[in-house]
Each structure stands twice: as structure tokens, then as C-alpha cells.
Amino acid sequence: MAAEEHVQHAAEHAEHAEQAMTPASYIGHHLTFWQHPVKPDGGFWTLNVDTLVTSTLLGVLVFGFMAWVARGATSGVPGRRQAFIEMCIEFVNDQVRGIFNKSFEFVAPLALTVFMWVLFMNAMDFLPIDVVAGAMHALGAPAFRPVPTSDVNATFALALSVWFLMIGFAIKAKGLGGFIHELYAAPFGAPKLTMNPLSWIGAPLLALANFLFQMIEYISKPLSHSLRLFGNMYAGEIIFLLLWLWAATGLMGTIFGAILGVGWAIFHILIVALQAFIFMMLTIVYISMAHEHH
């Protein structure tokens, strides 16, 4: 099992570098990205190579496989591969149909992309981190984190892309005027200027309240969308690291660390799938909300 291998490796790891390795340095080591500064001074102009490479590779594999199956898809009796991919597609399609009552030509493939990609990026957590990081280190990488979704850049990238799509769909559905109108006319209703002088104060206040609420909504959507996924995956990774840290303390630690590691890995399967599902559902919900008129 991967987890046991992992424990062994962690133990070896600890033995080899008993003097240099402290718990903080072990965890810190595994939470360091392989960063490549695009500009010499770094800062914002840095790329997390591990996140990008892992996620792109996974995407190419997953979507390449799906496209390969789709190319040979038959409307007759499907093979096992095609049946599996169709099952995934039908699952996503059902969710989209359940939420989205408009034409979903673009939303359904978007949801499928989000679901499959996030699922596989999350699933990288099952790989024994010391083996992966050690192998990459041997290949010359300064550091390596194999789970792209525990990088806040990746989750923000997904959430912000969805956010921009959401705004784009909102403008497409309501027109630019309708979109701007909604910014100050929802959720409390459109402010009306009348001859009554009180409304001259009331209307701007109402518009302001509406605008503030809309802003909170627009800011909280990508934040909660991305940070929920990030937090879950990051926490999962930390718990694995703590267990492997325990495994390095001695024989009992190794045994209990392995047992708990297996337990956590099994529970983590649920989290991995659930978080991918939640991310997809929120994507569909946000874009479906963008089509609603107030």
C-alpha cells in the first residue's frame, strides 16, 4: 500500500537526516513550492512550477483520455471505457440540468472540466509525498508539492476564472445596463426618486445598501469558492505530514502512524470527491445565478 511505503520512506528520511531534520523543518520542507522567478526580483513574478506542471500534466492525461474515448465513441453498445466516461458525463449533465434551466451548451462542459480536473488534482494527495518529493528532488527540483489544489494560486485561478465567466454570463444575459442596474437595485429593490424630498435621501441610501450587499456577494463568492477547496486539501496534506512525522519517532509511531495514515487516506477519498463535487456544484450555481433576473 502506498501509505505503508510512505511511512517507511518517512522513517528512512528521518533516520538519514536525524540531526538536520526537525519537525518544523520536515513540514516546512514539504510545504515549500518549487518556485521559479520570472523576473530577477521575484515577488509576484514567480511561478510555482510544481503546481503548474502537475496540474497541466493531470489535465492533459484526463482530458486527453476523455477526448480519445470521445473520438471513438459509438452510439451503439458502448465499451467499458466509454461507459465509464459516459457515466461521468451523465452525472455532471444531470447536476447541470437540475440547477440550470437555460441552455447549458457551455456550462455543462465547464462543469465537467472543473469536476474532473479538481478531482484528479485532489487525488494527488494519495501519492506518498516523501516518495514523490524525493524523486523530484533526485531529478533536480529544489522542492516539490504534488497537490495543486493545496496551492492557493491554483484554487484562486479556478475560482476567479469562474467568477469572470459568471460576470460575463450576467452581462450577456441581462445586458450591460441590466447588470449595472442590478448592482444598485438588488437585493432590496430599486430606489425610486419621487417629488417627496425624503426620497432624495432614501433613494441614494437604498442604492448604497444594495451596492454594498452586491459587493459583499461578489467578493465572498470567489473567496469562499477557492478557500473552501484550498483549506480542505491543505488541511488534508498537513494531517498526512503530521502522521508521517509521528511515523519517524520510532517503531510504535511507525505502526500507529501507518494505521492512522490508512484511516485518514480512506476518509480522504471522501473529502477529495466531495470537494471536487462541491466545487463543480458551486460553479454551476454561480453561473446559473448570473442568469437570474431580479
Binding site: F44, T46, L52, A157, S161
Partner: peptide
């Protein structure tokens, strides 16, 4: 950092 934009493009 820039990963955000790169990842968005990949997405």
C-alpha cells in the same frame, strides 16, 4: 503570484 494567471490560462 504569477501561478494564478498561468493556472487560469491552463484552465
Amino acid at each position: 503570484n504569477l501561478t494564478l494567471i498561468a493556472q487560469s490560462i491552463v484552465f
